[in-house]
């Protein structure tokens, strides 16, 4: 039987083709990582349930249909909303018009003054979503920075880098994320 010699296929360009395919898929694949601001909605209220909160414990933030801010009765600015919120929550000089504090014993932290302050956010139906997110963002940032400060003080790392869940809970308890959203009202029209 005569030896059949098999014709050889030129595989020299194989690597090139594989490489080309790799590049193609690298470029075309989109991995949309979802990011966002996480919130928890309050359960629906049974008819007109009035919750009594002292005036000094509420930090009122209003956004009107023209995206203008009213913070504690005064025209506000998004630039210093974060600082205002932080000062309000912490009440560093124990002022009478800023929120009360309660002494609480928390694991890992010992006795801590926990602020009773609540941020009350109210928006109009005509407010733009962008503005709303900006405000939510500033408020979240304010609480985050407070938590970071406390965490750095006690554990030497930022809140986000805390691994121990029990410690995280302790910080969360010391600085609760108190953002309340008022029942919606239609003032400015659509």
């Amino acid at each position: 039987m005569a030896a059949r010699n098999i014709p050889e296929i030129n595989a020299g360009s194989m690597a090139d083709i594989a490489f080309l395919l790799l590049i193609f898929f690298l470029v075309t694949t989109t991995m949309d990582i979802d990011t966002g601001i996480t919130r928890k909605l309050p359960p629906p209220v049974e008819d007109d349930m009035d919750i009594d909160v002292k005036e000094r414990n509420i930090f009122k933030v209003l956004i009107n249909s023209a995206d203008r801010l009213l913070v504690e009765g005064k025209a506000g600015n998004i630039g210093n909303l974060k600082e205002q919120t932080k000062e309000f929550i912490m009440n560093p000089y124990n002022r009478d018009d800023l929120p009360e504090k309660k002494l609480e014993t928390i694991n890992f932290l010992g006795d801590v003054w926990v602020s009773k302050g609540i941020v009350s956010l109210k928006n109009d139906r005509g407010t733009s979503y962008n503005m709303y997110i900006q405000i939510q963002d500033e408020l979240t940032q304010a609480f985050k920075e407070l938590r970071d400060d406390l965490s750095l003080n006690y554990f030497g790392v930022k809140f986000d880098n805390l691994v121990d869940d029990a410690k995280r809970d302790a910080i969360k308890k010391a600085i609760p994320m108190a953002i309340s959203e008022a029942e919606p009202k239609d003032v400015g029209g659509k």
Binding site: L41, P42, R125, Y129, I133
Partner: peptide, 28 residues
């Protein structure tokens, strides 16, 4: 979309509260 008016969002939030879907995320 960032140019949406809050009216629509508020309506959605109210519906979500009614059905008990409290965990939400504002995609940004």
């Amino acid at each position: 979309d960032k140019n949406t008016r809050m009216g629509v969002i508020t309506d959605i939030k109210q519906e979500l509260r009614k059905i008990g879907a409290f965990k939400i995320n504002y995609s940004s």
